[in-house]
Amino acid sequence: MADAGNSTAFGLLLRDLLKERSLSMRKLSELTEIDTATISRIINGKRKANLQHLERFAGCLEVPLLNLFEAAGYSVEQIKEKSHSDIHTSIDAIQGVLASSNVYNNQFSIERVEQKLENYGLYSQTEDGENTIHNSFEEKIQNVGSVGPFISKLKELYERFTSGKGTPSEIILIGSALLYFIIPVDVIPDYIFPIGYLDDAIAVQLATNSLVKK
């Protein structure tokens, strides 16, 4: 029932967006290359929009993809906001989202994220790594266009990194999380948006947990 409710709410939102832009379903079909009948079913709450649909709608209607993602009933933000929850519970939730998305078939594991973080920790100690963080963080934040605990925590980490507030080992941890977020090719590539940022949220959580332990 909840899924049906989300589909209905999203359908109403999509109908309003089309009205605001004076677009017909047929025109949206031409722009997105999604069958008109499919769009009609989504608008009427008879079908849930998948991630490919949402990506195309966002591009054509100039709406933040994350907004549509949430409106359609996907629960990525719930995963991001569990900054103090059991990390393995979040991993299980991510696996569920990935399994239902049909856009990412590789195995996701916390070990792969930890290995990436270790590599980026080493890279953050180089001049090139530091420059990447200083020159690319703000632009990446703007491109993501999101708010909430995930982004807020990243901004806090960035301020600590740029001000050098912390021990050398803490700065390395912070740098690893920032580079994981900035560099698009990680465990789940960022171009598979918004799923591509699920592992970034986990990476930030792992780094934060390690900082607390220190």
Results as ranks from 00 to 15, higher is better:
residue 130 E to L: 02
residue 130 E to Y: 09
residue 130 E to N: 04
residue 131 N to I: 11
residue 131 N to A: 15
residue 131 N to R: 15
residue 131 N to Q: 15
residue 132 T to M: 08
residue 132 T to D: 03
residue 132 T to A: 06
residue 132 T to V: 10
residue 133 I to K: 00
residue 133 I to D: 00
residue 133 I to H: 00
residue 134 H to G: 03
residue 134 H to R: 15
residue 134 H to D: 13
residue 134 H to L: 15
residue 135 N to D: 11
residue 136 S to Q: 13
residue 136 S to H: 12
residue 136 S to E: 12
residue 136 S to N: 12
residue 136 S to R: 07
residue 136 S to T: 04
residue 136 S to A: 13
residue 137 F to M: 00
residue 137 F to E: 00
residue 138 E to Q: 14
residue 139 E to I: 15
residue 139 E to G: 03
residue 139 E to S: 13
residue 139 E to Y: 10
residue 140 K to T: 14
residue 140 K to W: 01
residue 141 I to G: 00
residue 141 I to Y: 01
residue 141 I to A: 00
residue 141 I to F: 01
residue 142 Q to N: 12
residue 142 Q to Y: 03
residue 142 Q to V: 02
residue 142 Q to T: 04
residue 143 N to L: 11
residue 143 N to R: 12
residue 143 N to I: 09
residue 143 N to W: 10
residue 143 N to Y: 10
residue 144 V to A: 01
residue 145 G to R: 12
residue 145 G to T: 12
residue 145 G to S: 13
residue 146 S to F: 11
residue 146 S to T: 08
residue 146 S to G: 05
residue 147 V to A: 14
residue 147 V to W: 05
residue 147 V to T: 12
residue 147 V to Y: 12
residue 147 V to M: 12
residue 148 G to I: 13
residue 148 G to Y: 14
residue 148 G to M: 14
residue 148 G to L: 15
residue 149 P to M: 08
residue 149 P to A: 10
residue 149 P to L: 11
residue 150 F to K: 09
residue 150 F to A: 07
residue 152 S to E: 08
residue 152 S to C: 07
residue 152 S to I: 02
residue 153 K to Q: 12
residue 154 L to G: 02
residue 154 L to M: 09
residue 154 L to D: 01
residue 154 L to F: 04
residue 155 K to Y: 08
residue 155 K to S: 14
residue 156 E to G: 09
residue 157 L to N: 03
residue 157 L to V: 05
residue 158 Y to E: 02
residue 158 Y to R: 06
residue 158 Y to A: 01
residue 158 Y to K: 04
residue 158 Y to I: 01
residue 158 Y to L: 03
residue 159 E to F: 10
residue 159 E to Y: 07
residue 160 R to W: 09
residue 160 R to M: 05
residue 160 R to Q: 10
residue 160 R to I: 03
residue 160 R to E: 07
residue 160 R to N: 11
residue 160 R to C: 06
residue 161 F to I: 05
residue 161 F to V: 04
residue 161 F to Q: 03
residue 161 F to D: 02
residue 161 F to W: 13
residue 162 T to F: 02
residue 162 T to H: 03
residue 162 T to V: 06
residue 164 G to D: 06
residue 164 G to S: 06
residue 164 G to F: 06
residue 165 K to I: 15
